[in-house]
Design a protein around this nucleic acid. Structure first.
Lengths: 244, 244
DNA sequence: GCGTCTTGGTTTGTTGACAATATACAAACC
DNA sequence: GGTTTGTATATTGTCAACAAACCAAGACGC
């Protein structure tokens, strides 16, 4: 009655949004925001009544999120928020290192002055959050910074793949440690160096710095796990050879 | 009544296979086998009665395959087999080049004698198919060879990502051209060189050869498209910078 | 006391029915 | 004749009900 939104956009919304897609988005939000933790069980009826839809759309959203790697289904038992093992987190880091190295090389070759200004502005914001010791802000801005760099690399499939991996990584139980307070200043310096290398159009350097940046995150992960779990048999650089 | 399969496996099957997963697998088979072509519309009722299930499982399978990138849904219009544009195919090739380079480097570092024998046996089979001018066999063996190499790299997420990309690539309309008859001998030689580099434990060389191997496939794609479409404005190395 | 079996309730898997939207065709108007 | 409007049909989106499987608690036998 009172809203004055463009009518065309409302029509657009009604035409494109199915209940399934809305349920899917809401679940994805809850998972990435941590409201749903790895291992949590999702009850169809409960969720359906909570969102005021029937079980059909809920089940369809389940199948989509299962394929996206965020949920896990056990037949006749239910669906659960997937939990990512240390080994899997490690594999994702290894993949990200490869992808981000490519991103660095590409950006050094194709960055525009506007994009460069944008990245520098994001680094300023990151520095401010670091100085203010604001972990939440820092984590969010750090995510946005990396996401934007991948986007600027200009390969849609790469962006899709990258986002998928990052989303899965948030399901690693101890993920919070990767944004440890002590890591913020070092990480900020690395960000500056990366953008500098891009600005100076040095693909090799930019690629190497990106790869090393990710691998340091990976190292922090291992260090934290070893520190927490003690003499646990931590996974080596890569996972054992697959056989099936 | 007459089958003598292990009972435990049948129980396992009954417990793990839902109708949804079976429908999903069947659709995936039809798509990758080419029985369903890009752009084809899938009718829920028709498909359901054909597979002797109701529309529920069919719709759930649709959502999963949509997330997998094999189907596209238009609300109230239906679901269609997705078609991959030249630009997208190009992006996938670029990504594969990056991933396969990593695979080459990894294999040179971690390959076992058994795995090496296996790869050499696959190359023999590829050579035989090439000599016999058997395109179907060659394409199948070529796929298996690359898939196995990625698997041997020992990173499950990498394998998952790679397979996803390859599956999507089969949706590129003119994909058949990538296995052009003239390309078989050259490709066979490249395969031998790659395995040799791996056997000699030279990560740099193996990585470079893998990357170049994929990029030659990409070049063949462009050449064929240009040859077919004439003076079309073919996409450059990478896609334009994303903005959203 | 301990383990097994039964049993009731809960949850999922599947189905069929209803409502809403889009497409195709025919009729009316300019 | 061409465009538009109205209507019929088909298909999708959503929902509610049924059947099967799982889980927990209590009864029973040892």
């Amino acid at each position: 009655m009172s809203r004055q939104a463009p009518l065309s956009s409302e029509i657009e919304i009604l035409q494109s949004q199915s209940l399934t897609s809305l349920v899917q988005r809401e679940l994805e939000r809850r998972i990435t925001a941590g409201e749903l933790a790895p291992g949590d069980k999702l009850n169809e009826i409960e969720l359906a009544s909570e969102l005021n839809v029937s079980r059909g759309p809920v089940r369809e959203a389940f199948r989509a999120l299962e394929q996206a790697g965020l949920l896990r289904t056990e037949k006749n038992r239910g669906v659960f928020v997937r939990s990512v093992s240390l080994q899997e987190a490690d594999e994702i880091y290894a993949l990200r290192a490869v992808l981000d190295e490519y991103v660095g090389r590409q950006l050094a070759q194709r960055i525009t002055p506007e994009a460069l200004r944008e990245l520098r502005a994001m680094i300023e914001a990151l520095g401010a959050a670091s100085a203010a010791r604001d972990l939440d802000d820092y984590a969010r801005l750090n995510f946005a910074f990396h996401d934007r760099m991948v986007e600027l690399a200009g390969n849609g499939k790469l962006l899709e793949t990258y986002r998928r991996l990052v989303k899965e990584l948030t399901l690693y139980r101890r993920e919070a440690l990767s944004a440890a307070p002590t890591a913020m200043p070092a990480s900020t310096r690395e960000h500056r160096d990366i953008v500098s290398a891009i600005a100076s159009r040095d693909p090799e350097l930019a690629g190497r710095l990106m790869r090393e940046h990710v691998e340091r995150g990976r190292a922090r992960l291992h260090a934290a796990v070893q520190g927490q779990a003690g003499a646990d048999t931590a996974a080596p650089a890569d996972t054992p050879a697959g056989s099936a």
